[in-house]
Design a protein around this nucleic acid. Sequence first.
DNA 1: TTTTTCATACCAACCGATTGGTATGTAATG
DNA 2: CATTACATACCAATCGGTTGGTATGAAAAA
Lengths: 218, 218
Amino acid sequence: MKKRVRDPEQTQRKLVAAAIVLILRQGFHATSVDQICAEAGVTKGSFFHHFANKEALGLAAIAAWAKIGRDAYAPAWHDAVSDPLKRLHRMLEIMSQLTERPEGPCVCIVGMMSQEMALQDETLRDACSGELLDWNQEVAAMLAAAKEKHPPAIDFDPVEVAWFLNSLWQGSMLVGKTRAEPALIRRNLTHARAYLDHLFGTQGRASRKPKSPSRSKS
Amino acid sequence: MKKRVRDPEQTQRKLVAAAIVLILRQGFHATSVDQICAEAGVTKGSFFHHFANKEALGLAAIAAWAKIGRDAYAPAWHDAVSDPLKRLHRMLEIMSQLTERPEGPCVCIVGMMSQEMALQDETLRDACSGELLDWNQEVAAMLAAAKEKHPPAIDFDPVEVAWFLNSLWQGSMLVGKTRAEPALIRRNLTHARAYLDHLFGTQGRASRKPKSPSRSKS
DNA sequence: TTTTTCATACCAACCGATTGGTATGTAATG
DNA sequence: CATTACATACCAATCGGTTGGTATGAAAAA
């Protein structure tokens, strides 16, 4: 007889982890509860013990993904000592590196579920909207701090520019996935850098050929 | 008995039109063939007479959408007399106006199906990839022509910048839909304009109005 | 310590509805 | 007539979700 293991937290974690993997590959609708259970090695009965419905699992997946993101961005976001402009470039560097992971294309579960569910499921839309906002606030805070420390050549609204970067990032992952060309994302990020350099009046080129990414010190 | 109308072309058009409406609202997977048939006022037998399967209809919807797009961009793309840089700004103007339509949020079926299907269905991915490429080539051609006529302040690769604008546009629609804030898209387009002005060395501001001080920190 | 209790983690089997897709028949067209 | 356009009825598979019940472990009771 199989030994029955009781570990509710790990069971939930396994389900959420399986959901993230499958949703990133297939999208939310195309990923069935059965599939998630199989991937997690959990029965369906157990699934619905821990989650009221599929939507609830979606929410948990979004939250877990957000945590992964915060950890990835942490070196740029939560380094109080560095210059804010330097931290901004560091974040762009991190984003660029996310592009090079061999496990698969650079994708975001928030962007995917936004695109798929925003007009259908208000709860999921709100969750995605909130995560996009959180990202934006971090970036806007860095931009605002950078503005204060380095009077920009051209005035701008930090929140507005953060949404600009946010949208570019999401769109780059979308197009990069469809074109199966991660280098495309990196080139877009280089242009984002160039725009920031333009706003702050710092030296930087728009880049014509993909050369070594200039990580000029502020 | 009901009079039976035979108009194969219109039947196909109705099916494609219904598919576009429903997919834009619900995504591809969430839109069933039954639903499409109901919306189009066509029976399922008729559907499968005209389309081999659901994927085939998806392809037709993408193609039809691309035609709609070409018509919308036509004033900017196919005006041989205007200055190419002017045509570029005209296109951005058109994109901005697409944001203001009251029928619903500004969305793109290519971006939606890319995000949902790119890693699942190679045929659909190729179709989306091709449409993104077509858009890009039009924009890249304008950029190249503009470069020739107006020697830019900063050298750049037209194709590369076109992908930058392409990604920004797709990402803006994604975020704009999720945040339910079409003005966000317009502001992003303003920044795109500013970047182009920067590249070409023409006069332009980053944003019209620097707004209230940024706060917001977690 | 040992036994009893009891909420909960977990499971297999099942449910009605819906999915994409077919088989087959009929009516219009050329 | 043959071909094409459309309709009806149906299918197996799968969907999200429910069912009734078993296994478990920690606390309470003995």
